[in-house]
Design a protein around this nucleic acid. Structure first.
Lengths: 354, 354
DNA sequence: TATTGGTGCGGGAACGTTCCCGCACAAGAC
DNA sequence: GTCTTGTGCGGGAACGTTCCCGCACCAATA
């Protein structure tokens, strides 16, 4: 360190970073005074304050964040992890919903003064142990995952979905699955659908479990047949195939007249599948997709989507977590985020969008 | 643990977190010894080592990461920022390329023992000042952005594209734009294209600037007309509209016979646009998209894509940055990542995929 | 002139680790 | 029995901040 490698080409000083004491010495002040000057605290004469600031600026002083954190007892860092299969640790980002959830989480956190650390799905607790996280946001945990237990046991505040309700130091936000299903199905029914089919992924995420239950209840309440298909895998391929099995009815059998796809799927691909099987959208088939995919706006016809409002979810989540972190709020708290149906031509029988 | 809160409900002891000295006192050892025992260092008798470990386990000791970082002089934290307009700070995640780049960056970093912090685009330097970042990865910086200068001035190692070449403490990775353009255009020409049109975003990202230059050179070298359209805005809407202006030729004018879309666009939407204007793909129009969008596999016909291989870019990037951080490697270093053309039916004239 | 009250600044501990030492003791060599 | 070498453990400084104090000084009051 002391002796920079001799020959070199563009040898830079190994920059033994300037500390607070260096500034103090240079300015002929104590570190206490300089610290107060830079932070705008303490009782200092304007002259001294300015001298300290000027010296710090001149020397290129940049405070050591780690030391601050140690002193402050927290690092203003929150972890962000998406529950899910350990074999698909990072692919969640490719889903528009999680892309927006992730971005919104980072943005909101930053506004509140916290930075977001990306963590891998699955319970790799060991990996995080040398990260100083003030709290962790667990998005869409799968049932049976132990991450949350581990974190709470470690005394780290957690923010997740309703499954953590009542747990100490945990708060939650959830998407209103029941309202979502009702909103979408009511809309389809108003538009004349009598045989709407639900396509839903076969995973243990709380939201999807609730969607199935809500669908069952709705069908019973409205006296319509309970038509549903479960998709074993995620991704466009499996979902589109599932849609095809729904549309490919044997001759003479009753055809579905509406589709509510809750699995993440590309809007144009779903439309394409419908056309392949001879359906005209929206005349033969009303289509509603639960999706944040922006391509829904640009298809022909544009596709009605049900947004889970990831930005709202993220905001509520960060807000709750920060409340716990800052004010030590300890009462369990939660938010239920309503969904938003964006009606477009694909689900309006008359072809007329309000 | 000592006295569990009596009546229970959800009152937790405010948990005055157990420190190393607490464990030491409890075990009748010194903190030095306990530290050595837990870290597997030092010369200790097996008995003492086990006693320390057992006590720590029993007391639920979790080392304070911040203190470690202060001692170690680094926090094992890497910042990750995507250059771009400050008005679209986070939307980059919705692009498949950046989604995968981001995921791969996080994954690779974690393997190397570093965690990744999501940073907002734009030069909000102030925001990061109380983050202890060991280094920063700047993906696709726009020309004229000062983030990199600021970081280097602050002595923080930076990893970015070739624009940082030669800068001290910086290393780079770049996508082989010239090779990419050549590969795609050669392929289209082999398939019989004589009037291929390039659609490229009108932004100052290094890659896109190089693409335009490479296209110009290629056209000149092969004696084909230099047909190109610049898209002012990003997003599916503008790109599709640009494609439409290309396809909407006045009667009698020569029609394009191939499309090379470098802007991020949804494959099915591009195909749909082609059909709207009466082109049969691939018979009337060969289509190649520079995209990581997985929907390209599921369209009819499947769309040929040119992958920029975000995972490879991320790996090279993290590797270089870590090399600087760990071994203080100071010689400028860089990697040029070759692209990969995935030929599918949309660009094969005969309709036959090899 | 003594007493009070306020202002301006510095000394030093603390945050929780790691790691360089040094000390005590035991065992082997002569 | 002394001298060396080695083993097992602990004391204490250091990482770079912030913040609680206390001390000196000055002005105003009695």
């Amino acid at each position: 360190m002391t002796e920079a490698s001799g020959h070199e080409g563009q040898p830079s000083p190994p920059t033994p970073r300037v500390r607070l004491v260096d500034v103090a010495r240079e300015a002929g002040l104590s570190k206490t005074t300089v610290s107060a000057a830079l932070n705008g605290t303490g009782r200092l004469s304007p002259a001294v304050r300015e001298r300290a600031r000027e010296t710090a600026r001149r020397m290129g002083y940049r405070p050591n964040a780690t030391a601050r954190h140690l002193r402050a007892g927290r690092a203003r860092l929150i972890g962000y992890v998406v529950g899910g299969a350990p074999d698909a640790l990072w692919t969640y980002l490719e889903s528009p919903y999680f892309a927006r959830l992730t971005g919104a989480t980072a943005a909101t956190s930053l506004l509140r003064g916290y930075a977001v650390v990306l963590l891998p799905a699955g319970t790799l607790q060991g990996e995080w142990s040398d990260l100083s996280l003030d709290g962790v946001i667990v998005a869409d945990p799968v049932a049976g995952d132990t991450v949350i237990e581990d974190l709470l046991a470690a005394g780290i505040p957690v923010f997740s979905d309703r499954s953590v309700e009542g747990r100490f130091g945990a708060s939650w936000v959830d998407v209103d699955a029941e309202g979502a299903v009702a909103e979408a199905l009511d809309h389809l029914r108003e538009q004349g659908a009598r045989r709407p089919v639900l396509v839903v992924p076969d995973i243990a995420t709380r939201f999807h479990v609730e969607v199935e239950a809500a669908h069952r209840a709705w069908c019973a309440a409205h006296g319509l047949p309970e038509l549903a298909v479960r998709v074993a895998e995620s991704g466009n391929g499996p979902v589109v195939r599932a849609v095809e099995t729904v549309l490919d009815t044997p001759d003479g059998a009753e055809r579905p007249d509406a589709l509510l796809v809750v699995a993440e799927a590309s809007p144009p691909l779903v439309l394409e599948a419908a056309r392949r099987y001879g359906y005209e959208v929206p005349d033969d088939l009303l289509v509603v997709l639960v999706s944040e995919d922006a391509t829904a706006l640009y298809t022909d016809p544009p596709v009605t989507t049900l947004s889970l409002r990831p930005e709202a979810v993220a905001e509520a989540g960060v807000e709750h977590l920060v409340a716990v972190l800052e004010h030590g709020r300890r009462e369990p708290a939660g938010t239920l985020v309503p969904t938003r149906l964006d009606v477009r031509a694909s689900s309006v029988r008359s072809g007329r969008v309000e």
